[in-house]
């Protein structure tokens, strides 16, 4: 029995990226996720739809919030969840990714949730296992459930998606969150902008975004949503940006810059935040921030994705 009765079937075996989805798939998942929101708000937060199913969280990169979110989502649907954290170094020295996939596959899981530092690694793994695979982030490629939870958060606050203007600001070059969001929002006729210093804008990004800005004030003008990205400042400093203080001066979100966006613009961040690097703490924790809503929507989206991939076959 699925919690998501009445929704069209989700016609994919895996969720590897937003690029595999069309707008109907995306809206289907968002509608399903919306229906999951009340489950987590009620006192007994459980559904039986994944009873007897085995979910493995296979994280080659450390993660606290995404892994916890998938774990909670699975448990609220009744799945048995196993967490496996594999340090990439030990794997690259011994077992290959394909060996790991074969080993896990022999344990007959129903779904594997994978995060890996290499773009394309999750797709590679999905071709070697007999169960559903969900991409929880692969390199700088995709992070589909993040884009879905961002879209759901926007829809909850704005009542719609089509016709809005969303500005994504920060380390576009290294961000899978940016890519998945650009793909998803683009598929739903949302106007997308990317804002970053030229060193953090990858070649050809204009094929994914409606507009590209290096001036943050220009880029924020009239935006309905401001989505900030985490800057890996330890890695970027001295090469991509000269200093945190210069980055913050030109690309940190503060009240003055936010003033260029629409008065009712909301502020988002996929976390974890660097307060004082890409965002003013007063904004991060202020009235227009919907960052904790994103976390809540994350559980709903992941429940919906698990349900769509696994519960379908039982009815």
């Amino acid at each position: 029995m699925s919690a998501a009765r009445g929704f069209p079937p989700f016609r994919h075996r895996h969720l590897l990226g937003i690029s595999q989805l069309d707008q109907y798939d995306i809206l289907n998942l968002l509608d399903r996720a919306e229906a999951m929101i009340p489950v987590s708000r009620q006192e007994r937060k459980s559904l039986p739809t994944l009873n007897g199913k085995t979910q493995i969280n296979l994280f080659f990169e450390p993660s606290t919030r995404t892994q916890a979110s998938f774990e909670i989502a699975g448990k609220r649907l009744g799945a048995q969840v196993t967490n496996m954290s594999v340090r990439t170094s030990s794997v690259s020295k011994g077992e290959t990714l394909i060996d790991t996939a074969a080993t896990l596959n022999a344990m007959r899981p129903d779904v594997i949730i994978v995060r890996h530092s290499a773009s394309g690694a999750v797709e590679l793994l999905s071709r070697k296992v007999g169960c559903a695979v969900i991409n929880a982030g692969d390199g700088a490629h995709e992070h589909p459930t993040q884009a879905l939870l961002d879209a759901l958060t926007i829809r909850q606050h704005k009542g719609r998606l089509a016709g809005l203007t969303v500005a994504i600001c920060g380390d576009i070059a290294n961000s899978r969150v940016a890519r998945s969001n650009l793909l998803l929002l683009g598929a739903l006729q949302v106007r997308t902008r990317v804002i970053a210093p030229a060193t953090l804008l990858p070649k050809g990004i204009e094929t994914l975004a409606s507009e590209v800005f290096t001036d943050m004030r220009e880029g924020l003008k009239g935006a309905d949503v401001v989505m900030m990205l985490r800057l890996q400042h330890e890695r970027a400093q001295g090469r991509m940006i000269p200093s945190v203080r210069e980055y913050y001066h030109f690309y940190g979100l503060d009240a003055e810059k936010l003033g260029y966006a629409k008065p009712d613009a909301i502020v988002m961040h996929p976390g974890p935040m660097n307060r004082g690097v890409e965002i003013d703490p007063a904004i991060a924790d202020g009235a227009r921030s919907v960052i904790t809503d994103q976390v809540e929507m994350g559980v709903a989206v992941r429940m919906a994705v698990l349900d769509a991939l696994l519960a379908e076959e039982t009815h």
Binding site: G139, R179, P202, K203, G204, L208
Partner: peptide, 13 residues
């Protein structure tokens, strides 16, 4: 190769 394909794939150019 650096370019749109690498960017879409999330691969360094």
């Amino acid at each position: 190769n650096e370019g749109a394909l690498a960017t879409i794939s999330g691969l360094k150019g």
